[in-house]
Amino acid sequence: MSIISTEELTKKFGEVTAVDHVSFAVERGEIFAFLGPNGAGKSTTIKLLTTLLTPTSGRMEVAGHDPWRESAAVRRTFGIIFQDPSLDTELTAYENMELHGVLYHVPRASRRSRIEELLTFLELWDRRTSLVKEFSGGMKRRLEIARGLLHHPSILFLDEPTLGLDPQTRNHMWSYLKDLNAREHTTVFFTTHYMDEAERIAQRIAVIDHGRIVAQGSPGELKRQTNTQSLEEAFLALTGKTIREEGATSLDQLRMQGRLWRGR
């Protein structure tokens, strides 16, 4: 039974069609990746699925409910790590975690120990009483991840979760998530433009470009479909472009800088 599904899902912003008749299904307990270049419509799809946007047309279902019409029911089923910053920079790291714990009904008895566990895991426990505005970009990102993992929802949406993280923290985070997936059958829906990440982590991948899904399947299937040796080549064959690590990395840096400028 699929836990997330869309049928001809479409979202237009004026003239721009950000998500264009997208249909896919994610099975319960699956790790599913949305792979696509900048502006492909990945974040918009996640916003639609997580009750933040109303669709222009098409159907979608998350855990058996329509995210727009039955938003309250859907909100009880998922956790999310956003691509853009979403911390309160005037609060401390601990206060951000605590606020999240209350919003997501983490029982008071286990709240403190969960917060300590996750902040320690992301190497932020020593800085728990610092205001977030004093954090570096990478530290803020780590805090967002710690916060997103504080409660245990049945679905986790991760929008470019590793953006701006050092490789070590990236690996750390993915092993934690794989473990969580194995132990609690958490469905993980993540977006990325890192090929290696999609290939290594995801059981199935949907390649999205210009708002359309151009292919979906396991990494092996995608390579077979396109008759290529690597996911990189498969991607090139499917979209006519490359997302190379270097490109992505310098873009990341730009984005992180933008974030620093914008942040308070």
Binding site: T51, R75, F78, I80, P85, D88, H105, R264
Partner: peptide, 17 residues
């Protein structure tokens, strides 16, 4: 401001009325 700086999203998707 909260919308601009992103914190609003955090409260809008939370499973609370």
């Amino acid at each position: 401001w909260d919308r601009q700086f992103g914190f609003l999203k955090e409260t809008l998707v939370a499973p609370v009325p």
